[in-house]
Design a protein around this nucleic acid. Structure first.
Lengths: 168, 168
DNA sequence: GTGGTTAAGTCAGTCATGTTGACATATATG
DNA sequence: CATATATGTCAACATGACTGACTTAACCAC
C-alpha cells in the first residue's frame, strides 16, 4: 500500500518478475531446441538422439551409467535411441579397460559430423546472444542458470576463474 | 598461438564457453521441470497440462489461437489436454464477446489452486536463485535469456523500466 | 571358487504428447 | 451469398518416456 502513487505493488512486482523468469525458461528452451529438432527429423531422429549424441561427443568414452545419470531417463528409454545410433554407425561401443562390463561410448566420424551440424545452430544462437548481451550479462546468466540446476550437478560446470578471460 | 604459455587456446575457451551455455540450458530445464512433473503425475496429467494451465492462468480469457501460438503445437495436440482440463473442471470456456467463434479460456477456482501448487515450486526455485545471485546477475540472466528467444516473441517480455506495455 | 553385486541389455506392455490429414460447425466479413 | 476464420473432431501414427521382469557377463568379497 505504500505504492499508491505509482500504482505498483512491490509484491506484484516480485510475482511478475518470477513469472517472467519461468516464461523466459519456457520460451528460450522452446526456441533453442526448435532448429536442431527440424534437422533431426530429416534423419528420422528425435530430440532424444540429439541429447545422446551431444553428451557422448562431449564426454568421449562415457559409460552408459554416466549417460543415464545425465539424462535422467531409464535404461530402456536410452536403449532404443542408443541402439539406433549404434546400428546406424553414429556411435561405437567398446568394452572398458578396467571394467569390461562397461560399454564405453564414442562418436564415429559420422557421429561427429551430425553432432556438429546439430549443435552448430545452438552454438551460433548462444554466441550471437552472448555477443549482444556483453560479458557482464553472460556472467550473470551463468550464475543464475547454475543456481537453477540441482546442487548435485553443479560440479559439471567448473569455473574458469583463474585463467585469462578472453585472450582473442 | 598466443596462449602457449598458459596452454589455453582462446578458440577452445570460446567453444567450451558455448558448450557450457548449451548444457546450462539442458540441466536447468531438466531440473526446473522435474518437480512439477512429479506432482502432475498424481493428477494423471503431464507437462503439457501444466503449460496450458500456466498460460491460461497467466492470460485469463486467452483464445485457443493465442495459446497455440505460445505453445507451438497443433490444435489436435492441444485439444486433448485442454479437453481433459475442461472436462475435469480446471478450465472453463466462454464465447468471445466481439467474436463469438472464440472460446475464451479461464482457470476455475480448482484450476487456480493447481496452477499455484505446480508453479509454486518453480517460483520458489527462481526466487531462491535470484536472491543468491543478486540483482545484477538477474539482469544479465534476463538479458541473455531474452536474446535466446525468437525475436517475434520478445515483446512478451516488457521491460518494467519503460512503463506498462500491455494494458492487461 | 562360490555367491552376491553391478553394468548393461532385452522383452513386453503402457502412457503422454507430439504429428498429418481430412472433415465439420459456427461465425465473421467482404 | 461466398469465402475465410476460429474451433473442434476423428483417425492413424511416431516418439520418447515409463514399469516390471528377466538375462548375461563381469567384478568382488569371503
Amino acid at each position: 500500500m505504500s505504492d499508491i502513487k505509482t500504482g505498483i505493488n512491490p509484491l506484484f512486482l516480485r510475482e511478475e518478475e518470477l513469472r517472467q523468469g519461468i516464461e523466459l525458461l519456457f520460451f528460450a528452451y522452446r526456441d533453442f531446441t526448435a532448429e536442431p529438432d527440424a534437422i533431426l527429423g530429416e534423419y528420422g531422429f528425435g530430440r532424444a538422439h540429439h541429447r545422446v549424441i551431444y553428451f557422448v561427443g562431449r564426454h568421449p568414452g562415457i559409460t552408459v551409467s554416466d549417460l543415464l545419470d545425465i539424462l535422467r531417463i531409464t535404461k530402456q528409454s536410452l536403449s532404443r535411441v542408443l541402439g539406433q545410433l549404434v546400428t546406424e554407425k553414429f556411435i561405437t561401443q567398446r568394452p572398458g579397460l578396467r571394467d569390461r562390463r562397461q560399454r564405453l561410448l564414442e562418436l564415429t566420424e559420422k557421429g561427429v559430423e551430425l553432432e556438429r551440424l546439430l549443435t552448430e545452430r545452438q552454438r551460433a544462437r548462444i554466441a550471437r546472444t552472448y555477443r549482444e548481451a556483453g560479458a557482464e550479462a553472460v556472467e550473470g546468466f551463468r550464475k543464475v542458470m547454475l543456481g537453477l540446476v540441482d546442487e548435485a550437478d553443479r560440479g559439471r560446470f567448473p569455473t574458469r576463474a583463474a585463467g585469462p578471460r578472453r585472450g582473442g
